[in-house]
């Protein structure tokens, strides 16, 4: 009798632990604050991806040559790299260069987003695939900045 009782309790505890172990992982897919607060592209890359090294990759960035309004710059990034895990978008000349990071493990290697640009700058797309980092850039000329004033 007491053995079965023990077993039941043990099972309950194990189940509880498993649930607890599973939950924080989901909840704590924590927002990478230090990466978003970084003031330079290298700092942001280090904080987010742990490296500043990247190879040139087959990444297509669609963005306007000239953006009249830096507050809304539509861009889209398509990665032609196999097993694209994530696409991060960085604007080096912005006060906070990291704009967004997309986890695309379970989706197609494409993302489109509207971003702010303080002034003329490259738009950098970093693609993570199999532990390797690939980089694509495109320059966008901004006539009116989208940050501040």
């Amino acid at each position: 009798m007491s053995i079965t009782r023990r077993a039941v309790i043990k099972n309950a505890v194990v189940a509880g632990l498993v649930t607890m172990a599973g939950l924080p992982k989901l909840l704590l897919a924590a927002w990478p604050e230090s990466a978003f607060k970084a003031k330079s592209m290298d700092d942001a890359m280090n904080a987010l991806l742990g490296t500043t090294e990247s190879a040139a990759g087959d990444i297509v960035i669609k963005a306007p040559e000239i953006a009249e309004n830096g507050a809304v710059v539509p861009i889209s990034v398509t990665s032609k790299i196999a097993n694209t895990e994530s696409i991060s978008i960085i604007v080096p000349n912005n006060p906070s260069p990291l704009v967004a990071s997309f986890d695309l493990t379970d989706s197609e290697p494409f993302v489109s987003v509207r971003i702010k640009m303080a002034k003329t700058s490259d738009v950098v797309a970093l693609v993570k695939s199999g532990g390797q980092l690939y980089k694509g850039t495109k320059e966008v000329k901004v006539t009116i900045g989208g940050c501040g004033g």
Binding site: F102, E108, R114, K116
Partner: peptide
Amino acid sequence: VFHADTGAGVAKNPYFAFKFK
């Protein structure tokens, strides 16, 4: 199927597009 960490560098009234299978 899609997860994004975003900062203030995303434009006002954000627009996102993505594809998945």
